[in-house]
Design a protein around this nucleic acid. Structure first.
Length: 263
DNA sequence: ATGGTCGATTATCGA
C-alpha cells in the first residue's frame, strides 16, 4: 500500500494536479492539508472518477484537511480527541481528520503555524501538539499493535539540517526548542519518522517558499512528516519526497511525501 | 533577468 501526505495549498486550485498525480504515482491513500474550502466546495468528482473515496473537513477558506482513499474509508473522525481550538475569529479552523483505510488508521494533520514566537498562536501550537501527543500515546497504550500513521504538515523543522540556513531562522518559529521538543515527544510516544531514513539530509526538504526564488535556489524546509506507530513502521519498505511535483506553474509550495507499506 | 509569490476574498491576510 502506498500512503502519501501533501499540503496542496487550496484543493480547488490544485485539483487537476492532485488527480493526475494520484493516478501517475499509483497512490492508494492521500492525506491532504490546506484544502482552503468548505465541505460543500470540495471538488471530489475528479477523484471519485478515478476510484477514490473522499472525506473532508473544512469550514472556511482557512486550513482544511482531507483523506482520499481507494482502499476503503471507514470510521471518519473530525478532530482528534482533546484537540484545542483557537477562538474567534478563527473558530472555523479544520486541522485534523482521521479515517481507517486498508486496515491503517491514517490522520491528516495540519499543525498550527505559530506565526511568531511572541504571538498567542505560538502557544496554541504548542498546546495543540501536546494534546496530540497525549491522545496518540493513549492509542498505543490501549493497543500496542495499532497501525497508526500521523501524516501531515507539522510546521516544525526538527533538525538544523531541515532548513537551508539556521541563521535565517534565528528567533523564528518552526525551529524553536519548544517546538522541537514537542516533535520529539511524538517520537518518544512511539511514532517514528519513517521517511527520513530513505531521504537523508542535509538539503532534503518538503517545502519551499513561493517568494525569493527559494525553490530554484534549493532553499527549503523539511516540514511534512509521516509518523508511524511501531507495528506500522516495521512494515515500511520505502519512502520518497516528490520534489518533481513542486516544479512548474501551478505547483503547491509543498511537495508530496510518499510512504510504501508492505501489505 | 536587477529577481517579494500565492490563494481566497476583495485591499488584506495568512502562509
Amino acid at each position: 500500500m502506498r500512503v502519501a501526505t501533501w499540503n496542496v495549498n487550496s484543493i480547488r486550485a490544485r485539483i487537476d494536479r492532485v488527480a493526475s498525480w494520484l493516478e501517475r504515482r499509483d497512490v492508494d491513500v492521500l492525506a491532504v492539508q490546506e484544502t482552503k474550502c468548505r465541505d460543500d466546495q470540495f471538488p471530489d468528482e475528479p477523484l471519485r472518477a478515478l476510484g477514490y473515496d473522499v472525506a473532508h473537513h473544512g469550514l472556511s477558506a482557512w486550513s482544511g484537511v482531507a483523506v482520499v482513499s481507494r482502499v476503503g474509508l471507514e470510521d471518519v473522525e473530525v478532530g482528534f480527541p482533546g484537540q484545542p481550538h483557537w477562538g474567534e475569529p478563527l473558530a472555523a479552523e479544520a486541522r485534523a481528520l482521521g479515517a481507517t483505510c486498508g486496515g491503517v488508521r491514517i490522520w491528516s494533520l495540519y499543525v498550527p503555524n505559530g506565526r511568531t514566537l511572541a504571538d498567542p498562536h505560538y502557544l496554541y501550537k504548542l498546546d495543540w501538539l501536546s494534546r496530540l501527543r497525549d491522545t496518540a500515546a493513549g492509542w498505543l497504550a490501549v493497543d500496542a499493535a495499532a497501525t497508526v500513521i500521523l501524516a501531515g504538515d507539522w510546521n516544525i523543522a526538527p533538525l538544523d539540517e531541515d532548513v537551508w540556513d539556521m541563521r535565517v531562522f534565528a528567533h523564528s518559529t518552526h525551529v524553536s526548542a519548544p517546538e522541537r521538543a514537542a516533535f520529539e515527544a511524538i517520537i518518544e510516544a512511539g511514532y517514528a519518522d519513517v521517511v527520513r531514513p530513505y531521504t537523508p539530509g542535509p538539503g532534503t526538504y518538503t517545502y519551499w517558499d513561493y517568494t525569493r526564488l527559494r525553490f530554484p535556489r534549493r532553499e527549503g524546509m523539511r516540514l511534512d512528516f509521516a509518523m508511524c506507530s511501531p507495528a506500522l513502521a516495521s512494515r515500511v519498505t520505502g519512502a520518497e519526497i516528490d520534489r518533481q511535483e513542486r516544479k512548474g506553474k501551478g505547483a503547491s509550495d509543498h511537495a508530496p511525501v510518499i510512504v510504501e507499506i508492505d501489505g
